[in-house]
Amino acid sequence: MGTSLYIENYCIIESGKILLDGVEVFSSDADSFADFSKEALRHFTIQYPKFFKMDHLSKLAFLGSELLLKDLSGKENTALLFANASSSLDTDINYQSSISDKENYFPSPAVFVYTLPNICLGEISIRHQLKTENSFFIFGAFNPEFMFGYAENLIQTQKAQRVLCGWTELLGDEYKAFLYVVSKDGKIAHTIENLKALYEN
């Protein structure tokens, strides 16, 4: 049994709080995700004007990846493996409302582009210049067995050196993100049991 891969670091964003490697690094009383994410960006003094153009799913994925990748060296070959339950439905609903009234029919290209869940992977790739493997999956709930198996495969087949994994679920003002980096370095063994435990925190 056992594994030679590790969880290098991890991040949880949920209910107005951000935890990095199990330690709370930010909390806010903001009622909406919009306000919460903006406050978090200011708190970590992240200068990135494009953030304000993103939809909520991308903002959630961006914040988590920012905290995990910013101090990582040699991250060029970090693959992105993301999943959630609601796909891009949050933005889909928003876009649908822009086309449902024929008297006030102005479909927005800036909204439409985010009606695909993998756009958040594009945002992270651009930010960190990751020309790497990336894919977005949808499951009914966090699926540690799949995430474990696919991340192991990416590294073992040398398609990537590291994998940034993310469960980024968001619909309306309900959200939960669990992101972690899988690599050959770290203290926490990369196992299904550990992924479950960290996700439940």
Binding site: K53, F106, P109, A110, V113
Partner: peptide, 9 residues
């Protein structure tokens, strides 16, 4: 380019 399209809207 997306901003340009938004300005058209």
């Amino acid at each position: 380019s997306i901003d340009a399209l938004e300005l058209i809207v």
